[in-house]
Computed example of a mutant assay.
Amino acid sequence: MFLEHLYLQHFRNYIQQEINFTSNKIILLGDNAQGKSNILEAVEILSTLKSHRSTKDIELVYQDRLYGQIKASVKNKYADYDLAITIPAKGKKELKINQEKVNRHIDFLGILNTVTFSSLDIELVRGSPEYRRSWVDSLLIQLEPIYYQLLKNYNHILKQRNALLKQMKKSGISTIEQVPELKAIELKLWDNKLAEEGSRISRRRARVLKKIEPLAKFWHNQISHKTEKLILNYAPNVPWKKDTPTDVQNAIKSEIEQKKIAEINLGNTLVGPHRDEIEFIINSSLARNYGSQGQQRTLVLALKLAELQLIEQVVGQPPLLLLDDVMAELDLKRQAQLLDSLGDRFQTIITTTHLNYFETDLLNQAQIVKVEAGKLYF
């Protein structure tokens, strides 16, 4: 998989810029806040249709412009593609493949696969459960593009159910007996939908964590020299015994019934995969609570290398690797481990403020692009 060309218009701090990628290793060099990370973000959006830096599309559009645009030429194992995303300040994204409009997001996903490793990823270990859920979800979107639609469906159901619970709370309902018949029927409908879509989310999360765990263990052993034992544990909000749609749905429905009064009193859904946790355990202790900073960085590096390997195994070709200001975060040993592990298989785009993080051999091979105030210099 090779990204040949990238064009940005009215995206973040770029008015209009383009770049032809001529190497397997690209270094974006510049001071902070010049736009280096924005280039990686554009590539990430082409891959997953979302950004780990922003949840609002309006933040992606340059100042008061009506829209932003990202275009790219991608060569992969199977075909060549021209991809385009138009991001309006208000409204839905417009997607095109080879100049043809695409109406379904799942048809766009899977053409360009990426793994992003940023200085913010330490939050994967010590941050909130939401960060870890987002990591698993982004991985699943690339492995199974249909997951994007499943997640969208679940979030829509969750939003509608929360709105109903808030209405019931506002009207003073505090017991099941006080719920009007029509409201009870409507709530039951959302309960069933939540259980049905929630089971699809939870079962896929459990499946992908089982796949990535042995890969993460391998890399963690390599980096820590087998001095630490890593376990990835999926801790769903609603545990189940058998991994079947019926069993998982019934478990969710049962938990909903037990917590329905509490949900009505709070006006919020307490049951479902939106409250899942993913636990990283090192030597029998939760990494977020007891891991040293060095251990946490080793863990994140192992997870990212495992992510690269899993995507390559599943899709049949290596993804792009986006390294956003991570070299300064890693000590020399971990830098060497990362770069040695990559070899030449992965096209890699690296942002940095200084070139002295890199060995001469890499600098001689790399395409170096200077980034300054939203402009690129070659």
Results as ranks from 00 to 15, higher is better:
residue 144 E to A: 15
residue 227 T to P: 01
residue 204 R to H: 10
residue 132 R to S: 05
residue 163 A to C: 07
residue 265 N to W: 05
residue 252 I to K: 01
residue 164 L to A: 08
residue 182 L to M: 12
residue 224 S to T: 15
residue 223 I to G: 00
residue 266 L to A: 09
residue 231 I to K: 00
residue 134 S to E: 14
residue 219 W to I: 00
residue 263 E to T: 03
residue 230 L to N: 01
residue 213 E to L: 04
residue 243 D to E: 14
residue 248 V to I: 15
residue 239 P to Y: 07
residue 244 T to L: 09
residue 164 L to Q: 11
residue 250 N to F: 06
residue 133 R to E: 06
residue 226 K to V: 00
residue 247 D to E: 15
residue 264 I to F: 08
residue 224 S to V: 01
residue 215 L to P: 08
residue 221 N to F: 03
residue 216 A to T: 00
residue 267 G to T: 04
residue 242 K to V: 10
residue 153 N to I: 04
residue 262 A to W: 07
residue 192 N to K: 09
residue 229 K to R: 09
residue 166 K to E: 11
residue 258 Q to I: 15
residue 161 R to H: 07
residue 136 V to R: 00
residue 180 P to L: 09
residue 254 S to P: 01
residue 138 S to L: 13
residue 263 E to G: 03
residue 251 A to D: 00
residue 164 L to V: 06
residue 188 K to M: 12
residue 254 S to L: 11
residue 161 R to K: 15
residue 132 R to N: 04
residue 181 E to N: 13
residue 240 W to T: 06
residue 262 A to N: 10
residue 218 F to P: 05
residue 171 S to C: 10
residue 156 H to E: 15
residue 271 V to A: 02
residue 193 K to C: 05
residue 170 K to D: 13
residue 182 L to A: 13
residue 215 L to T: 02
residue 170 K to Q: 13
residue 176 I to A: 06
residue 264 I to V: 12
residue 189 L to H: 13
residue 240 W to Q: 04
residue 145 P to L: 14
residue 227 T to D: 04
residue 197 E to N: 08
residue 176 I to S: 08
residue 215 L to R: 03
residue 224 S to F: 00
residue 170 K to R: 15
residue 176 I to C: 05
residue 177 E to I: 09
residue 252 I to S: 01
residue 173 I to N: 07
residue 132 R to C: 04
residue 181 E to F: 09
residue 229 K to M: 02
residue 149 Q to I: 14
residue 229 K to P: 04
residue 155 N to F: 12
residue 218 F to N: 07
residue 154 Y to W: 09
residue 265 N to V: 06
residue 227 T to A: 08
residue 270 L to F: 12
residue 141 I to Y: 02
residue 202 S to V: 12
residue 176 I to Y: 09
residue 193 K to M: 11
residue 156 H to I: 14
residue 149 Q to S: 15
residue 259 K to T: 03
residue 222 Q to I: 10
residue 228 E to F: 00
residue 196 E to I: 01
residue 221 N to Q: 13
residue 262 A to G: 06
residue 243 D to I: 12
residue 259 K to D: 03
residue 150 L to D: 08
residue 171 S to Q: 14
residue 163 A to D: 10
residue 271 V to L: 03
residue 208 V to I: 14
residue 199 S to L: 04
residue 141 I to M: 12
residue 195 A to E: 02
residue 158 L to K: 01
residue 143 L to I: 15
residue 177 E to R: 10
residue 270 L to M: 10
residue 252 I to L: 08
residue 256 I to R: 01
residue 163 A to P: 05
residue 236 P to L: 07
residue 203 R to Y: 06
residue 213 E to H: 07
residue 229 K to C: 03
residue 171 S to M: 13
residue 176 I to P: 05
